[in-house]
């Protein structure tokens, strides 16, 4: 379903060619055969967050059933699966977005390391949690404020008042989001004046300013054109050195290009999890194979 629209040409060239697994031909010719798939990551990286026997209910409707899954440090974990499979629901559990709506229920644990904090425990304050785990949404959602004030928002919430400190941190965040050069002369202009891609990078800068430990990305490029998409993909790959990244995407080329680990979900269950190259080129489950080859979904 995403195959024809995917911006293949926009793939970052650094990953091309030698990275692909060429030793043995894959057992079936997959649709991604000609695509760029990231090399397998180093055997094991420390676990930043661990989902354990986790279920989630929208009042009486069960959206996630007994999901267990690690999110590793300095790596990008992609959640893929057809619409309604629960991948966004799972992502939104990490910063307790579901608390905003009545009747939602978490069952099981999501442990955040190093302090082994159970994110979904009732006694954990969602506000302090959200300062450690930032989120970027499907559609750019800058606030009706200036570019400067958008990035300053989270910093002010943390009680930073000093002008010079704000300015310094905002510059760093905008540089990290690869936006500084484009906006440094118009920081006082409304954020709505920016293009869609710039707005989304502003939202990433806003999230990075809080120096989060985990960055949640909910289809961050689904509203953007291929060029803006490719810039944000490059950015995400750079950022993983500093922050654990979880990304929900409908774009399988995107998952293949940028993620180190992939989790395939279907009907609220985790079907398959593994290194991205494994999941895409050597899937263990029939459903995964059908999905990544575009046979359904």
């Amino acid at each position: 379903m995403v195959t024809s629209a995917a911006p293949r040409h926009a793939a970052p060239p650094v990953h091309a060619g030698p990275a692909r697994m060429t030793a043995t031909p894959p057992p079936i010719p997959t649709l991604l055969d000609s695509d760029v798939v990231r090399p397998a990551p180093p055997a094991s990286r420390a676990i930043k967050a661990q989902v354990e026997n986790f279920s989630f209910f929208y009042s009486t409707v069960q959206a996630l059933a007994d999901v267990s899954l690690p999110f590793r440090e300095r790596a990008i974990t992609a959640l893929i699966g057809p619409s309604g499979c629960g991948k966004t629901t799972l992502l939104r559990c990490f910063n307790r977005m579901h608390d905003l709506y009545p009747g939602n229920r978490y069952v099981g644990r999501i442990l955040l390391h190093p302090d082994n904090l159970n994110i979904v425990a009732r006694e954990v304050d969602p506000i302090s949690l959200r300062m450690r785990i930032s989120m970027v949404f499907q559609k750019p959602n800058p606030f009706p404020k200036s570019i400067f004030e958008n990035v300053a928002y989270g910093l002010r919430l943390r009680g930073i008042r000093s002008r010079s400190e704000l300015e310094g941190r905002i510059q760093v965040a905008l540089e990290d989001a690869a936006l500084w050069g484009e906006v440094k002369d118009r920081l006082r202009k409304p954020a709505y004046d920016l293009s869609g891609g710039q707005q989304q990078r502003l939202c990433i800068a806003r999230a990075l300013a809080n120096e989060p430990e985990v960055l949640l990305l909910d289809e961050p490029t689904s509203a953007l054109d291929p060029i803006a998409t490719s810039r944000i993909e490059d950015l995400i790959v750079e950022l993983k050195e500093r922050v654990t990244i979880a990304i929900v995407t409908h774009n399988m080329q995107q998952a293949a290009r940028i993620s180190d680990y992939t989790a395939f979900m279907y009907l609220g269950k985790l079907i398959e999890y593994g290194a991205t190259a494994e999941v895409f080129q050597n899937p263990k489950c029939k459903e995964t194979e059908d999905y990544v080859t575009g046979r359904f979904g």
């Binding site: 905003l100 506000i127 959200r130 949404f137 919430l157 939202c203």
Partner: peptide, 18 residues
């Protein structure tokens, strides 16, 4: 005002009144 804007604010650690 779209819910998405409120969620953006909550996601940065803002409270309801803020």
């Amino acid at each position: 005002v779209p819910m998405l804007l409120r969620e953006g604010s909550y996601a940065l650690g803002a409270g309801k009144f803020t």
